[in-house]
Design a protein around this nucleic acid. Structure first.
Lengths: 113, 113
DNA sequence: GTAAGTACTTACCTACAGGTAAGTTAACTT
DNA sequence: AAGTTAACTTACCTGTAGGTAAGTACTTAC
């Protein structure tokens, strides 16, 4: 196994780590919603119009477990819960920006049917 | 619907475009393999050790349809096929680099169990 | 006292992503 | 003529991502 192959396989492993975190239909949308500020369950649901409460709840838990977001319970008198990006979550900004950038480029190249 | 919400929803749509292209277990690995140079079917299979010929064939077709890679048939005398990144595929480098970067960061934060 | 809001949970179902294994075509090698 | 290599294809199966629908617990508003 030569040098190139070693580098190639390391890259493959590293990208798999990232992809495991952002994989799926809802994780990136949730992260983006939270870049606009801390939000409550219902607010995120209103931003991501087609997500069901089940999926939102499930994906919020997964992101919390990966330390991307944090959950804060406020004992106010209708009890509210706020979700916010952790430092690790905030560190995804360049990645999310690139996903966005490339999406714009892709759309440009694809509009000529 | 205020300005923030409009921007948020546009971003959601754009990222979905990108994610549709890179979603799944094998697309990013295939793209990375091809950043090391044009490769034949069997060579990619050797780089990505755990991919089956079925999945490789299927994902190469999908990437070709999205104009990320191109397929060139050489009429040499064992017929060979070479896959290479198109300009659009090459334009994914910053995105792939960010996936890689963040994977490294994530691994650092996660190594303390 | 009943309706509505917030933040979920639970049960059930389906489609598809991905795995395994074997078959195919066609040339080249010994 | 039998085996090897390259590049796939086809058939079949399974697990899980994600959808739908309904239920729960608690509080405030009317």
């Amino acid at each position: 196994m030569n040098q190139k192959e070693v580098v190639c396989r390391q890259k493959l492993m590293t990208t798999r780590d990232t992809m495991d975190v952002i994989q799926g239909k809802w994780r990136i949308p949730i992260i983006i919603a939270l870049t606009f500020g801390d939000k409550r369950f219902g607010e995120i649901q209103r931003d991501i119009v087609d997500i069901s409460p089940k999926m939102l709840s499930q994906e919020l838990k997964a992101l919390e477990m990966n330390k991307i977001i944090s959950r804060t319970l406020y004992d106010s008198m209708p009890v509210t819960v706020e979700y916010s990006l952790t430092p690790l979550g905030l560190s995804m900004k360049p990645l999310v920006d690139e996903i966005l950038n490339w999406g714009i480029r892709f759309r440009k190249e694809t509009v000529r049917k």
